[in-house]
Every structure is written in structure tokens, then in C-alpha cells.
Design a protein around this nucleic acid. Structure first.
Lengths: 200, 200
DNA sequence: GAATTCTTTGGACAGACTGTAAATCCAATA
DNA sequence: TATTGGATTTACAGTCTGTCCAAAGAATTC
């Protein structure tokens, strides 16, 4: 009748381990060259785990994709210190851009596919939107350090310039460009737009 | 043995008609608020046509999506005359931007979903890439009228600024903006980037 | 050691979807 | 009237998601 008190570290650690294995397998599959579609079955096989365990750990395919995106996205936003300690707006914008381009470059294929899948998956879509929104608030804060009332339209444009879509498109245009090159191109555009900002 | 010479206008017209009906139904479904997924069955039902007819007319679901995108995209590129007769680069870029924004605004939801599906559909992906490439060559030609050797990186950025992704993101940020407002915001950014173009 | 709890596994199943095939119907045409 | 292209109907194979359940394995508590 009265339930026993259970507090296990080994079991919890093991569960975390399989979670991690599944996420790793999913990431590897999505990063692979030709994945026509990502099935839960394929992920389970790649992680050497039963299909049921995937549902056990993440509830659904959407849950798995959301968790995967979160693990990738959590790494972003970490290195924004450079941008926020820059002495002027140009250097701040450049640091901001570089930071995100590094992040986009890291898991480019995976991110592109996740974003594609989000179009058909409302939960995932909401998650991505929330993350993009975080980038925008960070950008707004950044510009507030150098401008009293930054123009909303300008922020929107720079926000879009620092998006994954822009990085992916520019990087795809010229395969010889390194992520740093792409960041440089985007940062130049961002500062140009910023300089043309109308006075309020 | 010898096949009759059949040249029917009525039959061909009827076939065209069902094709059109199917495309219309698919577009309507994709434009609808909450389409969790677009199945061939749903399209057939909405077009009041058998599922087999869809395969008859388009071969596969990919074929249907490609045809749908083509009918939408063919309307673009029509109204570029304004841009190519503009007296200076700024007006040309503005006309160019407005033209595409009008197009993006027309079938915004459908385009967004088609682009999402393209991530999981190689044929569709190739088609979209080809269309985007056409926009880039048009843009290059346009800038060649006012600049001897336009900077490749600058073109890439303006190309991205006039993309559907940029339009969609900027329009989504502020629902009160009309398509013309969005075009204005983007055109301002494009001209700013163009002005900052490094001399060659 | 024995009971208890959590996790994983395997199999089976319903339901939705894509794509193919064969038989049939219908209207336009020769 | 016989023929033909297109549309319909029905059936089927195969894949995928998501759920249920019974059983096994392992760690933890008593």
C-alpha cells in the first residue's frame, strides 16, 4: 500500500545515458548526407535501443526532435560576452554575428532539416520561434547600449541577417567560404544597415 | 494495329480542368490555417476527384507539389519591367524588392509550407533552388546596369534580403505591416547594403 | 535473501499514408 | 458502332507513428 521511497543515482544515470545515445544517433542520422526521412525506427536501431525506449524517453517523435534542437541551441547564447563588452556598435554587431555564425556552422545540416520539419510540426515550430525570439531580444539589448531608441525595422532586418536561413543561404552560395568569411559578409551588411538607421 | 489519330480538344481540356482543380484544391488546403499534413487523399477529396486521378495527372505527391510551385512561381518574374527601366540603382532595387514582396505576399502560407516540405523532398528542393537562382541572375543583371563589377558578396546579401524567408520573417514580426511596408523595410536595407559596396 | 520499483525489450496491433495494379465506366471521336 | 483516352473503383503491398502489454533485468529497500 504505502509506496517505498526510491532514490537511485545509477538508474537515473543509465536513463540519461540512453537518452544521450538516442539524441546522438538522431543527430548523426540528420547530419548524414542522404536521409530521405528520419524514422523513429531508424534512430532506435542506430542508437542500439528498442523503438519503445525512444517513446519512453521522449514521448513522441516531436518530443525527440524538440529535445535534439534544445541540446543544440543551448550551446548558443553562451559566447555572447564578447559582443556585450565591445566598445562600439560596429564591433558589437560583428562579435554578435560571428558568435551565431559559428553556432549555425556547427550543425548546419541538422539545423536545416530540423527547421524544415518544423513546418509540419507545430510543437517544434513554436520552439524554434521562441529561440529566434531570444536572439532578437539579445540583439535589441545589444543595440540599446549604443542607441537610445533603436529603430524596430532596422532591428528586424539585422535579426534576419543573423538568422540561420541567411547563414545557410550565403554559405551555400560559395562552398569555398569558411564560416568566418560568411560571418564577415553578414557583419558588413549588418553594420551597413545599422549605419543607415533613421534618426528618431 | 495502326493507332487512330486522336486530336481532341474537349478531352484535353477536360484533363486540364481536373489538373487545375487538383492544383487549386492543394493550394487551398496548404493555405488553410491548420493542415497538420497534406495527404494525397485529402487533396483528391477536396478536388472532388479520385485519389488515382491525382497520380494520373502528376505521377506522385512530389510531382503534385512541384507542379503547384511552378504555377505559383510562373507568375513571378513577370513584372520586373519596372525594375529594369528604373533610372538609378536605388529605384531599381526598390522596384525589384517590391515586385518580389508582392509575389511572396500573395501565397505566403503556401510558399512557406512548400519550402518546408522541400527539405524532405529532393526533387522539390532542386526546383526551389533553380527558382532562387533565377532571382539571383536577374539581380546580377540589374546591378550590372549601374555598376561595372558588382561585388559578389553584396549580391549574395541583397539576394538573401529579397528572399521569401526574409519577407516571411519580417512580415511575421509585425502583423500590422502591409506587404508594401515590408517591401519598404527590405528595400531600405538593400539600398543601404548596396551603397556600402566596396569599390573594386 | 526477498520484495519492490524502474527501465528496457519484444511483439502485436490499429490507423494513416504512399504508390501500384487491374477491372470498369463514360464520353468523345473516327 | 467500335475505339480510345481519361476517370473511377477496389484491392493490395509496404512504411511509418503511436499504443498496449507481458516479460525480463537490474538496482534498491526491507
Amino acid at each position: 500500500m504505502s509506496p517505498r521511497e526510491y532514490r537511485s543515482d545509477k538508474r537515473q544515470a543509465a536513463a540519461e545515458e540512453t537518452r544521450r545515445r538516442i539524441l546522438d544517433a538522431a543527430r548523426a542520422l540528420l547530419a548524414d548526407a542522404a536521409p530521405p526521412r528520419l524514422s523513429v525506427d531508424a534512430v532506435a536501431k542506430a542508437a542500439d535501443v528498442s523503438r519503445q525506449s525512444v517513446y519512453n524517453a521522449f514521448g513522441s517523435k516531436s518530443g525527440l526532435l524538440e529535445a535534439l534542437f534544445d541540446t543544440l541551441a543551448d550551446r548558443a547564447g553562451m559566447g555572447l560576452a564578447d559582443a556585450f563588452t565591445a566598445p562600439d556598435a560596429d564591433q558589437a554587431l560583428t562579435a554578435f554575428t560571428q558568435m551565431f555564425c559559428r553556432f549555425w556552422a556547427n550543425d548546419r545540416t541538422v539545423l536545416r532539416r530540423l527547421r524544415g520539419m518544423a513546418v509540419l510540426d507545430q510543437d517544434l515550430e513554436r520552439l524554434l520561434r521562441r529561440r529566434d525570439e531570444m536572439r532578437r531580444t539579445a540583439l535589441t539589448e545589444l543595440l540599446l547600449r549604443f542607441t537610445d531608441t533603436p529603430d524596430a525595422a532596422t532591428i528586424d532586418v539585422i535579426w534576419q541577417l543573423t538568422s540561420f536561413e541567411t547563414y545557410d543561404a550565403i554559405a551555400a552560395r560559395d562552398q569555398t567560404r569558411t564560416p568566418e568569411d560568411v560571418a564577415h559578409v553578414i557583419a558588413a551588411a549588418a553594420t551597413a544597415v545599422h549605419h543607415s538607421m533613421p534618426p528618431t
